[in-house]
Write a protein that binds this DNA or RNA. Structure first.
Lengths: 202, 202
DNA sequence: ACCTGAACACCGTTCAAGT
DNA sequence: ACCTGAACACCGTTCAAGT
């Protein structure tokens, strides 16, 4: 994990891990089936750190938002972990615990187990996806902002007129704002879903 | 692209591409700066195929849903492309055209350019994320379904009681349902956003 | 200009051999 | 049981040399 944080996902090779641990690469295979398993373990551990319990005095939407923010913040602080996240690694014990928690949250809010699971999963998809697609981009860096604006403005005004026209607004939009809008929309959508399924309940 | 579809992302090596093209690996670097550039070009081409125009007689939400479904379907038919998708590769001409289209859609629906960009970006994040995190999982396969149910049911009932309790419902939930719920929620949330920003408009 | 052959510095994984 | 050294079959990239 130290290696991953310090030198990034690309440096997480069996040779480097072995060196960090002071043994040969071959010995690692005594403790871990292959590199894939090592990655799974690392990801699951990172998830455990990220999933603390939200404040008790809050409704489901506030709790969901709180957890989503915390999870995202943790992943952004450890970009190496984020870049390792794939669909196949949701099976570790800590990932499952997180899923169990989210499921309880949405069932408590009034959704059926199936809908609750879909909602929880969608939320996780969005959080992880939004980190994943903004890796290596620091939105707060002014140089980055200028670069984005120049990029949009220099495009072909015939092909993508709106990008050119609104280059300033687009450059201004950081990944934080983007995340906030998406999260708010998703939760508002869940609320609509809850109200609708309330109506059709027997 | 043929190589990618036939043998997957892992087989997309410079040596294999060279062999497919009937030349040496070294010659590839005459046409492409490095492997990264090759990937970017492939991804952008795939996006162009996926982004056809939705039917004219539809409101913004129907159009957005139509495009999202089409994009997702295309990515699922070409898993190799999906697994190559990263945040850094949204800069190809076709990706930008898609972004321009989505921006127009949400501005037309009544959002400010900034909010429209955030909405478009969130939607893309969700679509790509949901494909990404379900790679290699065929939800319709009954064996897969049984396997999921067994997986949930065999967990520790103390640690993750809800997963065990609702194992059947969770196993039933495929990635299609999951996507549908998330997409609907996101669009419903955008609608709320539009109504609110209508009210506060000068 | 474009291509080749050969090399460089890396990977993940395996396995007989040691203790 | 755990570790080592050495190898195997791969990577992406570079570069002098050819045409």
């Amino acid at each position: 994990m130290a290696l991953l944080d310090a030198r990034g996902a690309a440096a997480l090779t069996m040779r480097n891990v072995a060196e960090e641990l002071g043994c040969t690469q071959a010995s690692l295979y005594r403790h871990v089936r292959n590199r894939e398993e090592l990655v799974t373990l690392l990801v699951d551990r990172a998830i455990s750190v990220a999933s603390a319990a939200p404040p008790e005095d809050a409704d489901w939407a506030e709790k969901a938002a709180w957890s989503a923010h915390r999870f995202r913040a943790h992943l952004r602080r450890h970009p190496g972990v984020a870049s390792l996240l794939r669909g196949t690694e949701r099976l570790g014990p800590n990932s499952l615990a997180g899923m169990n928690y989210a499921l309880g949250l949405f069932i408590g809010a009034g959704l059926s187990p199936k809908l609750a699971a879909a909602a929880a999963s969608s939320l996780a998809t969005f959080v992880i996806g939004s980190v994943h697609f903004n890796l290596g981009v620091d939105a707060r860096d002014p140089a980055e902002k200028r670069h984005r604006r120049r990029l949009y403005r220099s495009r072909d005004a015939e092909a993508v007129p709106l990008l050119v026209q609104h280059a300033d607004a687009l450059a201004e939009l950081g990944s934080d704002d983007e995340f906030e809008v998406g999260l708010t929309a998703l939760l508002a959508g869940f609320r609509v879903l809850i109200e609708n399924s309330d109506g059709t309940r027997d």
